[in-house]
């Protein structure tokens, strides 16, 4: 398990990370969510050793993350970085060798990856000749070339077209399926919602919420219900303990003072006529995010 424990970091007196702690569990995709400037990139750079923490630790399987350990990490920086004028295959092989692969192993790995992300035909083109989406695919391949034990990806989906999002998501899922912990940041909450198993929500340099997606949904589920009737639902405002959030003819969203009252409301509705649907509203990630970062 990759564990970040009580990490602090200041830049010139300004504290950008304040006692950050979270875990990235093997085999799970952990979404790292926060507004711009919340501290996502700084946290990732500290995990990668590109920045040092003022205090706190980063451990992998209980051991401090040294350079030797970090060489088994895969990293995709936020501001994309590869050599613009170098051929894709050549620079991926170079990176693989820097990570410690032998030349034949690096070539084998690069060919497989290029095939997986659909770049085999562009392998001998310089990076700058590729579309942005294809450059991004090459960038993903760069993070995976040495078959890393841990994946840290800063905004891997930004700037990708829907097809490329599927390709990249598929590749990351595959890696997670092989037992690799995957930490990825994103500000596209819908993508994170669809992909992540676990979530870390960060705001102003502090972790506001962390846990599995289902756990967070339950924890931040507001006592809200949606009721759909045949006739007008306006009468419901007279039921004690109920406040209306949104009323639209036969459809009403209500909030209950006591969640246990849901059955009372349902019975009252059934007594007045047919009920087409009734159920709790599961909060979306966007709602949870708004809730915890306020």
């Amino acid at each position: 398990m990759l564990r970040v424990a009580s990490v602090d970091r200041s830049f010139g007196g300004r504290r950008v990370l304040d006692d950050i702690s979270f875990e990235v569990v093997p085999g799970r995709m952990t979404g790292f969510v926060g507004a711009n400037g919340a501290g996502k990139t700084t946290s990732m750079r500290i995990i990668l050793g590109l920045l040092s923490a003022d205090s706190g630790t980063v451990t992998w399987n209980g051991e401090p993350v040294t350079r030797a350990v970090r060489q088994r990490f895969g990293y995709m920086p936020e501001e994309r970085g590869l050599y613009p004028k170098m051929k894709i295959r050549e620079q991926l092989v170079y990176l693989g060798r820097l990570y410690g692969l032998t030349a034949p192993a690096a070539r084998r790995s690069v060919d497989e990856l290029l095939d997986r992300v659909g770049l085999t035909e562009r392998a001998d083109d310089p990076l700058e000749k590729l579309s942005l989406g294809n450059q991004q695919r090459a960038q993903i391949a760069a993070a995976l070339v040495h078959d890393p034990e841990v994946l840290i990806l800063d905004e891997p989906f930004s700037g990708l077209d829907p097809i490329a999002v599927e390709v990249v998501a598929g590749v990351l899922r595959e890696r997670a399926g092989r037992g690799v912990p995957v930490l990825f940041s994103s500000h596209q909450l819908d993508v994170v919602e669809r992909l992540c198993d676990d979530l870390v929500i960060i705001a102003a340099g502090a972790v506001r919420a962390a846990g599995s997606r289902t756990e967070l949904r339950t924890r931040y589920a507001m006592p809200r219900y949606q009721l759909v009737l045949d006739g007008d639902a306006g009468w419901i405002r007279d039921v004690p303990g109920v406040s209306i959030v949104d009323l639209d003819g036969a459809r009403v969203v209500i909030e209950l003072a006591d969640p246990a009252d849901d059955q009372t409301v349902l019975r009252a509705a059934l007594a007045r006529g047919p009920v087409r649907s009734f159920g709790p509203i599961v909060p979306s990630l966007a709602e949870i995010f708004r809730e915890v970062t306020q």
Partner: peptide, 18 residues
């Protein structure tokens, strides 16, 4: 100790090799 599978041959690079 169980560990996620190691890379193809991720042996790391020495200063000189790098």
């Amino acid at each position: 100790r169980s560990q996620p599978q190691a890379g193809p041959a991720a042996t790391g690079t020495s200063l000189w090799a790098a």
